[in-house]
């Protein structure tokens, strides 16, 4: 039987493509996953947990491993083995902690000899680490031959601001079937949030954090989870823990809860929230 030309040519073309596809499937398969947001603010985190979280960021979201090696000389960036100790010797008068933080937020402030200034600011997009993630990353770097003594307050409050604003902008566009006006009523009434929190022009209590720009500095997921499980989501540094009632999930109706979240997502005030510790200075 004579095979039609189109069948011969078609089979040949498919075979060629099949070989390419087979080869591409045979080599290591690496996919780029979506980086997860880490929020440790106010949580009771041990140094060990912090270092572990930092290691995860170093190898994952931070993409540090693309250039930096640990215990191996890199061609693009310095070897970070022992950085917890060597960081103290880089710039006279600067502690290891301060040097590491500066290196992450302003990498070109000091360049190790022999390496180009190619590192991006890690709190800016596209890497975009938030304050919690920066805190954990510094702890991980300190853990290499150094002492882990970094606190969240050591990370400048402006760090990650662009990412927070971008996240908030995206979060604000999250469509919830709630009514912000009704949510404001819940905030001031049944929820009794106003007893401890300030929210823009509403309330003035300094017991809990100022929520005037909560939509700008936190994700919708965090806000929703914090209302339902306040202790599980941790307490902001400088405020007494376990003050927020854990029963809002039971006392609020579904509609009230959604309304309240919708209201909180409108809070993008420009005035920075003042932590009591900061206001004392």
């Amino acid at each position: 039987m004579r095979v039609p030309l189109i069948v011969k040519v078609g089979t040949f073309a498919l075979a060629v493509m099949g070989v390419y596809a087979y080869y591409a499937n045979s080599i290591p398969q690496i996919q780029s996953t979506l980086p997860e947001e880490l929020s440790l603010e106010g949580g009771n985190v041990t140094p060990e947990q912090l270092v572990k979280a930092g290691e995860g960021i170093f190898k994952g979201k931070g993409t540090c491993e693309i250039c930096h090696r640990i215990g191996q000389k890199g061609t693009r960036a310095p070897d970070l083995a022992g950085i917890g100790a060597t960081a103290a010797k880089r710039k006279p008068g600067m502690s290891a902690k301060a040097y590491i933080i500066e290196s992450l937020l302003d990498p070109r402030a000091y360049l190790v000899e022999g390496y180009p200034g190619i590192m991006p600011k890690v709190d800016r997009p596209p890497i975009g680490l938030n304050r919690s993630e920066l805190w954990a990353t510094v702890a991980f770097l300190q853990s290499m031959a150094g002492t882990v003594d970094v606190k969240l307050d050591d990370i400048p409050k402006t760090a990650g601001a662009v990412v927070a604003a971008e996240g908030a902008a995206q979060g604000a566009e999250l469509k919830l079937p709630g009514d912000p006006k009704a949510g404001q009523v819940v905030f001031m009434g049944k929820g009794a949030c106003i007893a401890c929190h300030k929210a823009g022009a509403i309330g003035a209590s300094p017991i809990g954090p100022d929520l005037s720009q909560i939509a700008k500095i936190q994700t919708p997921e965090y806000i929703m989870a914090k209302i339902l499980d306040p202790a599980g989501m941790g307490t902001m540094a400088g405020y007494p823990p376990n003050m927020m009632p854990p029963t809002l999930g039971q006392t609020l109706t579904a509609k009230e809860y959604i309304d309240l979240v919708s209201f909180l997502l409108t809070l993008k005030g420009e005035a920075a929230a003042q932590a009591p510790a900061a206001s004392k200075q």
């Binding site: 390419y20 596809a21 591409a24 398969q29 690496i30 996919q31 780029s32 979506l34």
Partner: peptide, 15 residues
Amino acid sequence: EAVTPALGYAANMIT
């Protein structure tokens, strides 16, 4: 679907 797929997946799609 924000994950960027691995090469094998991409190759199948390209094929």
